[in-house]
Design a protein around this nucleic acid. Structure first.
Length: 291
DNA sequence: GTGTTTGTTATCAA
DNA sequence: CTTGATAACAAACA
């Protein structure tokens, strides 16, 4: 599931690959993947170009040469795969080509919802198995309203311990994990990194936010950027669907301490990692290390 | 057929 | 009004 490190990895790659390239054609294979009227979307992108790509939390803003701009959200299973030039695309689509496992993930397939073709022959594919993600034309007013809903970015200077403490003052009963997942509190954490952050901080995810000591809050505050930076360094985590813009998996999967490790031994103490439901999500933790 | 996966929003209860 | 819990969305997989 693309969270901050995954979306940022994609954003950085796409900036190198598709910025300022003329769009010559757009194909919408699944109407629901594009908000609003599809024909309007296609017409607006054609002969347009992407001049900047911004990110806030898990949401991307694609700045276009001709306004309005584009909001892109990958939700749970969205992928953005760029191919320089596809010589045998017709064969590939028809299934007449022998593909490596990676190619099958990366190329247009039955989950390809939108294709954007550039003047240099390169193509960008928006694949999305579950069709929760979207591309949406949005004028500046809509964009600003959407961005205003987000809490602070954990990798910015503005994200201070004072700010973090304020978040706890508003809440009491909810588990601390729910706070970490709240995009209006902190922008970009999702289920994987919320679990990893709480392991890093030795705090049990189900603890009511109000029950935490200042020391515990401080540890969580420190772990949030630490885990995020580490995950970004390894180009994100591939649990099921995440692929970067080249169709490659994220490498942080190998460094996960608790997520998807239920039944396995804690890397620190050897206790079996448990899985419970917390804040409505599958939640993984070490019953010994996390108090 | 059933339960599970999760980002976000809608809905409802307290 | 706030907070928090839960369902819904869609599709695949075990």
């Amino acid at each position: 599931m693309p969270e901050l490190p995954e979306v940022e990895t994609i954003r950085r790659d796409l900036v190198k690959k598709i910025l300022n390239k003329k769009i010559v054609q757009v194909v919408v294979y699944r109407a629901k993947s594009v908000a609003g009227e599809n024909t309007k979307f296609v017409r607006h992108l054609r002969n347009n170009s992407i001049i900047a790509i911004e990110r806030r939390g898990k949401l991307m803003v694609w700045r276009l040469q001709k306004k309005p701009d584009l909001l892109v959200h990958l939700k749970m299973t969205g992928q953005l795969i760029y191919e320089r030039k596809i010589k045998n695309r017709v064969d590939i689509i028809a299934g007449g080509h022998k593909l490596s496992e990676q190619d099958i993930d990366a190329l247009p397939n039955k989950f390809t919802r939108v294709a954007v073709v550039f003047a240099n022959g390169g193509e960008l594919f928006f694949n999305d198995l579950r069709v929760f993600g979207y591309m949406k034309l949005a004028d500046e007013k809509v964009i600003q309203k959407a961005l205003a809903e987000f809490g602070l970015e954990p990798l910015t200077k503005a994200f201070t311990m004072d700010y973090f403490e304020e978040l706890f003052k508003r809440r009491s009963r909810a588990p601390v994990k729910a706070l970490l997942l709240d995009q209006q509190a902190i922008a970009g954490l999702g289920n994987i990194y919320a679990d990893e952050v709480l392991f890093c901080a030795d705090v049990k995810p189900s603890r009511p936010a109000s029950s935490l000591s200042q020391h515990e809050r401080k540890k969580i505050f420190t772990c949030i950027p630490k885990i995020t930076v580490e995950a970004l360094k390894h180009r994100g985590t591939t649990f099921r669907n995440f692929l970067d813009s080249s169709g490659k998996k994220g490498n942080y999967t190998d460094f996960l301490k608790v997520y998807d490790r239920d039944g396995e031994a804690c890397k620190r103490c050897g206790t079996i990692i448990k899985k419970i439901r917390c804040a409505g999500r599958g939640t993984h933790f070490c019953p010994y290390c996390q108090k």
